[in-house]
Structures are given as C-alpha cells and as structure tokens.
C-alpha cells in the first residue's frame, strides 16, 4: 500500500499512535523512573523526574542477595530451553522431513498437552517433588519447565523446518553428501535461524513463568518471578527498591523480546498466524 499521504495526515496519525503507545508503556516507564528515586520521593506524589540515585539498586543487592534469584532465573530459563531443544530438534526434524500418516495427529496431540491447565496437575507434581527431594531445586524446575514448553518448541521448530525445501536435501543427497554431511553442511546452516528464534522465545516464556516457580521453590532455587512475588508483601511500601528489583527482573527479557517480536507471533500461535 505504497500510497502518498499528506504530511499533515501523517503527523495526525503519528501523534495519536504515540499517545496510545506511551500510555501502554507508561507503567514500565514509571517503574524505571521510580527505581532511580529515593524512597521518600517515591511516595511523595506524581513526579517524572527522579534524583537519579542508584541506592535502591545497591540496597536490593546487599539486603536480599539479589544475585541468587537472578542466577536461578538464568539457569532455569536457559537450562530448560536447551534441554527442550535437545529433545525437540530431532523430533521436529523427523516430522518435517520424513512425515508419516500420523505426523499431524502427533503434532495435534502434543499441542493438546499444552492445553492442560497447570493447576490440574499441581497436586501430583507437588507431592512428587516433596517425596523425591526435587522441591526447591533448580533441576526440578528445569525439568518441569522443559516439559511444559516442549510442545511449543517442537511446533515452532517444525514450522521453521518445514520451510526448508525438501528438494535442497535431495540435491545434497544427489551431490554425494552422506547423512552426516547433509546435516553439517546443508541442514544446520539453514536451520540455525529458526532454532535461534525458538530458543529466544522459549527463554522468554521460561523466564516469565510464575506458577510452577512459585509453587515449587522457597528460597534456594527461587528464580526472579518467585522472588518478586515474595518480595511484595513485607516490602510493599519500599517502592524505589521494589522498582529497582522489578527493573532488573524484566530488563533482560524486555530487550530480548524486542528482538524477537516477529518470531513471537509465529511461536505463540503455533504457526497459525505468520
């Protein structure tokens, strides 16, 4: 729709769009601003200009050992994603390149496991964790989050792999490539972008997961989502500190998210909207 539009019209739409965008973004912006305020400033009325102190950040680290939940988040998000990829890449690969009559059924079934409400299996998972000593361990959460996101990972990879034309693989076979060479020289380079965006989206999902992380951890393995949730009650009125902790919890993922918006649509709609 390359259509010439008068500058006036464009400016009008621009102003409207920016107002809406800033309103939506405002809570995040205000949190960032508050994180640079002193605690006194934070509760003394609406004010967009902080005194740019870093005290809150320092205190969050020193009082609550913020580094531990942060590292837990990293380990759990990355660990569960990598583990899911290890299982999902071969599966999606096989389904995309050697489909059988049942491939579609298998994919739909995998999707259906994703529809299972987490709370429905809260009781057994909780009891299993209590009895096996997995409670409040990183490895326990890694396993649960990996299984929870596995269907999305398989699906995303599948839709990416399916876009690699089968003729290219056949061409490699005709060119004398062994299966191993085919994978190293042709498939992997073509599949890497898809795998990378799957990884990105899944890290985001795992990082923000806040049901199992809260249910299955107390202190040792608690990632940021559980840490912040517990932070809320006693620290309700220390808003600058709360804001600083929030900013640190969401900043890495916000930035990753900005880079993966396109893949997000595809991953979260199981390829139904591209």
């Amino acid at each position: 729709m390359a259509r010439a539009v008068s500058t006036q019209t464009k400016i009008g739409w621009t102003i409207a769009a920016w107002i809406v965008a800033l309103l939506i973004f405002f809570p995040i912006l205000y949190t960032v601003i508050t994180s640079f305020k002193t605690e006194n400033e934070a509760i003394s009325g609406f004010n967009m200009i902080p005194s740019f102190t870093l005290d809150s950040y320092r205190e969050v680290q020193s009082q609550y050992n913020y580094f531990r939940p942060f590292m837990n988040s990293v380990v759990i998000a990355v660990g569960s994603t990598v583990l899911a990829l290890l299982v999902a890449v071969p599966a999606a690969w096989a389904m995309a390149f050697s489909p059988t009559k049942h491939t579609k059924d298998i994919l739909m079934w995998m999707l259906s496991t994703k529809m299972m409400p987490a709370v429905a299996v809260l009781v057994p998972i909780y009891l299993i964790f209590l009895r096996t000593g997995l409670m409040d361990t990183r490895i326990g959460l890694v396993i649960v989050l990996m299984l929870m996101n596995l269907p999305i990972v398989v699906w995303m990879l599948y839709t990416y792999f399916r876009e690699i034309p089968g003729e290219i693989l056949e061409a490699a076979r005709m060119d004398g490539a062994t299966l191993q060479q085919e994978i190293v020289h042709v498939l992997t380079p073509m599949a890497v972008p898809g795998i990378a965006s799957t990884l990105l989206l899944n890290v985001i999902l795992a990082w923000n997961e806040s049901f199992w992380t809260i249910q299955l951890t107390t202190t040792n393995a608690a990632p940021l989502s559980a840490f912040i949730a517990s932070f809320s009650s006693p620290q309700g009125l220390f808003w600058a500190k709360l804001s600083a902790a929030s900013v640190m919890a969401i900043a890495p993922i916000l930035i990753m998210g900005w880079f993966s918006q396109k893949q997000l649509v595809r991953g979260l709609t199981f390829g139904a909207v591209k």
Partner: peptide, 20 residues
C-alpha cells in the same frame, strides 16, 4: 544403491540451490 552412489546429477524444478 543410495542416490550418492549412482553417479548421477540432478537439476531440480526449484533449482534447490543452497541459500547460505
């Protein structure tokens, strides 16, 4: 014999070039 062992070369409809 697998395709690689037959000593034939093929030109595909979509050309099937390696994009990378």
């Amino acid at each position: 014999a697998g395709p690689a062992k037959r000593g034939l070369a093929m030109v595909f409809q979509s050309y099937a070039l390696y994009p990378h």
